[in-house]
């Protein structure tokens, strides 16, 4: 197995755990971003202020903000956390598929694919949870793309 396959496997494994913890039936782009932060080549991410905890906080902020726009407070109720058993999800959701599509468009051939391409594939989404979370947390997504695309050429 090529190094990129090992890399993608470990990112996806971590993303599956993030999705499972979320109660999500599918792996979405924001789970992949968390997966990269845990398992990936993430020194550059951390240097850009996007460590795992910062990403998680940004995602939680987006969730709460989106609920607040329709007058719902996520903190307004407290129920016991549901028990999570069984297998973490394996199905890629629409946002994760798009991230992979964009990642592959950076590489001319599959064997040219590198870790930074997946990160760029996630960051390039203009719409959805990841760009909203980054914007609300004060990250300049265009600057992040510019920063990482220098490594992608």
């Amino acid at each position: 197995m090529a190094a990129i396959d090992h890399y993608l496997n470990s990112v996806i494994e971590q993303a599956r755990l993030a999705a499972f913890d979320d109660g999500s039936a599918t792996l979405e782009a924001h789970h992949l971003l968390l997966g990269i932060a845990v398992a990936g080549e993430n020194a550059e991410l951390i240097a850009a202020g996007l460590g795992h905890d910062q990403i998680r906080a940004a995602l939680q902020g987006e969730f709460e903000h989106s609920l607040q726009t329709v007058g719902v407070s996520a903190a307004a109720y407290r129920l016991p956390k549901p028990t999570r058993v069984g297998d973490p999800p394996t199905t890629l959701g629409a946002s994760a598929k798009l991230a992979f599509d964009r990642a592959f468009s950076w590489a001319r051939r599959k064997k040219d694919l590198r870790p930074v391409h997946l990160l760029l594939g996630i960051l390039q989404a203009e719409i959805g949870t990841v760009p909203r979370a980054l914007a609300l947390a004060g990250f300049d997504r265009a600057a992040l793309i510019a920063r990482f695309s220098g490594d992608a050429a």
Partner: peptide, 22 residues
């Protein structure tokens, strides 16, 4: 904002359903 609220409400509803049914 409206579309993101739909996504967040679905997620909240799923989480609430899991906890409440259990």
């Amino acid at each position: 904002d409206a579309l993101a609220a739909v996504a967040a409400l679905r997620r909240l509803a799923d989480q609430l359903e899991e906890a409440a049914v259990e």
